[in-house]
Amino acid sequence: MSDTLANDLITPDVDAAPLLSQPGVSMLKAAPITRLSLRAREATLKDAGSAFGVELPVKPMTCNTGQKRAVLWMGPDEWTLLAPADDLKATFDAIEGKHESHSHALVDISERSEAVIVSGEKAVWLLNTGIFIDFSLETFPVGTVTRTIFHKSPVMVWRTGTDTFVVEAWVSFMDYVSGLLVQSARELEAA
């Protein structure tokens, strides 16, 4: 597995100013992407992966990536599929075409969530101000993904590099999440 996952998919939004930029840690708003939620049975996973272009992971808290594609394990029968923003219709139609005779749920959640990219040698410290997970590389290696709570907000955290994390939250919570991260970073800067 590459040390930096999805660097061709999860990229900074070039139209947005950095949310945080200080020695040791930065936070950038991620560019919009296609997000699909797939709920399906084990018998159809191979077809879904074939249609999407990336095999669906079956091991908890893992991901599989391909060129401009990522699949994140969210639960025993649930995955989040990520693709470029302009691939929504083609991706959706390809998966639906493979599953028309199988029970499943495929939902476009692209507008539901936003993501920020938190990176730098102090990224773990910053995330641990509101998430009580051991983010050491031994426990939470590159490629690990989980749902959790940041203070009082549900978030998804995906480690895409040694010192790089994607933090995703619902649009209605993102100002709260990013605001608390910036506030916590001020404490780091003062220390």
Rank of each mutant, 00 (worst) to 15 (best):
A43Q: 13
V58R: 03
I33K: 00
M61H: 09
L45E: 03
E55M: 11
D47W: 05
R39D: 12
G49H: 04
G66Q: 04
N64E: 08
R41N: 11
A48N: 05
N64L: 04
G66L: 06
A40Q: 05
K59C: 11
T44G: 12
L45H: 01
E55G: 13
P32R: 02
R41C: 12
R35A: 11
R35C: 08
I33R: 06
L38E: 01
V54K: 05
R39C: 13
E55Y: 03
L56D: 04
L36W: 01
A40N: 08
M61N: 15
M61C: 14
K59A: 15
R39A: 11
L36N: 05
P60A: 09
P60D: 01
V54F: 05
L38M: 06
T62C: 06
A51N: 06
P32I: 05
T62K: 10
P32A: 08
P32E: 01
V58N: 01
A31T: 09
E42W: 10
A31R: 08
A30Q: 10
L36R: 09
S50L: 13
G49F: 05
G49M: 10
T44V: 15
V58C: 02
I33P: 00
K29G: 12
S50D: 14
S37G: 08
S50R: 10
P32M: 04
S50E: 10
